[in-house]
Amino acid sequence: MMEGLVKVSIDINGKKYTDDVEPRLLLVDFIRDIARLKGTHIGCDTTSCGACTILIDGMSVKSCTMFAVEADGRKIQTVESLATDDKLHPLQEAFWEHHALQCGYCTPGMLMSSTFLLSRNSDPTEEEIREGIAGNICRCTGYINIIKAVKDAAGKINAGKETE
């Protein structure tokens, strides 16, 4: 039995964060308040909007619907993992080019859901992209430009692979 605080250690974007936390601490709060990584957003906080989407051991999940203790000893990727040095990830570039965001609040989640989608399906159809981001809500731009951006990024990533 564990009373009070529980020691939790999570690898986030290749760096290990360890702290004693309340069992009820949500993973998203661990990421934002303990690891101080503010890219992962809290939107609806009711498992609907997907703004808090991250990858855990490569699988996309909503970090508002997991306890931090469930992620103990596991590897997490947040939106901060996408860009390397000063270079944006092809998905981020495509979101920029296609005006796939206005307020940007949903963007970290959209990017992580798209990252998961492309990790499984390098050339998704429009329908597959729609299905892939069904758990992410955008309340300003709408989805057309986001879909265009994901399609474009997939093409660029694939073209990059061919020339390698």
């Binding site: 999940v61 997991m66 758990g135």
Partner: peptide
């Protein structure tokens, strides 16, 4: 069931 993130978990 729901969406990809929920199906993953």
């Amino acid at each position: 069931i729901a969406d990809q993130q929920i199906r993953n978990r």
